[in-house]
Amino acid sequence: MALSSHVQELRKKHQTLNDEVKEAHRSPSVDALRIAELKKQKLRLKEEIERLSR
């Protein structure tokens, strides 16, 4: 897999997680631990994207 396509795939995953976090905030049934885990995953992806984009 080419680096650019890998980065693009990571960006898609990041956006998907972003959407999940937004939806979780709107839903009172989602607990804070789940939201925190989604945010951690999102941050890890962001850091990986930044590292690969240099």
Rank of each mutant, 00 (worst) to 15 (best):
M1L: 06
M1F: 10
A2Q: 03
A2M: 02
A2K: 04
L3Y: 00
L3S: 01
L3D: 00
S5V: 03
S5H: 04
S5R: 03
H6D: 04
H6C: 07
V7G: 01
V7W: 01
V7M: 00
V7T: 01
V7Y: 01
V7A: 02
V7P: 01
Q8G: 02
Q8E: 09
Q8C: 04
E9C: 05
E9L: 08
E9V: 08
E9S: 10
L10M: 15
L10I: 08
L10H: 12
L10Q: 13
R11I: 05
R11A: 05
R11K: 14
R11G: 09
R11W: 06
K12A: 06
K12W: 01
K12R: 09
K13P: 00
K13R: 02
K13T: 01
K13N: 00
H14I: 01
H14F: 04
Q15C: 10
Q15W: 13
T16F: 03
T16R: 09
T16M: 06
T16H: 06
L17T: 02
L17Y: 00
L17C: 02
N18R: 08
N18L: 12
N18W: 10
N18V: 06
D19I: 01
D19P: 00
E20L: 15
E20R: 12
V21L: 00
K22P: 11
K22Y: 09
K22M: 14
K22C: 09
E23W: 10
A24F: 07
A24V: 11
A24N: 15
H25T: 10
H25V: 13
R26S: 15
S27Q: 06
S27T: 02
S27F: 01
S27K: 09
S27M: 05
S27W: 03
P28K: 10
P28T: 07
S29Q: 06
S29M: 05
V30K: 07
V30A: 11
V30I: 15
V30R: 12
V30Y: 11
V30E: 06
V30G: 09
V30F: 10
D31R: 14
D31S: 13
D31T: 12
D31F: 12
D31C: 13
D31E: 13
D31V: 11
A32H: 01
L33F: 09
L33I: 10
R34H: 09
R34P: 02
R34N: 04
R34Y: 06
I35P: 13
I35N: 07
I35S: 12
I35F: 10
I35Y: 09
I35R: 12
A36Y: 12
A36L: 12
A36R: 15
A36P: 03
E37A: 11
L38Y: 04
L38C: 05
K39E: 01
K39S: 02
K39P: 02
K40H: 07
K40T: 14
Q41G: 08
Q41T: 04
Q41S: 05
Q41L: 08
K42F: 13
K42E: 15
K42Y: 15
L43G: 00
L43Y: 03
R44E: 02
L45F: 08
L45Q: 10
K46P: 03
K46I: 04
K46L: 08
E47T: 12
E47F: 07
E47S: 09
E47V: 05
E48C: 05
E48T: 04
E48Y: 04
I49N: 05
I49L: 07
I49K: 05
E50P: 08
R51M: 13
R51F: 13
R51D: 10
R51A: 14
R51V: 08
R51W: 11
R54F: 13
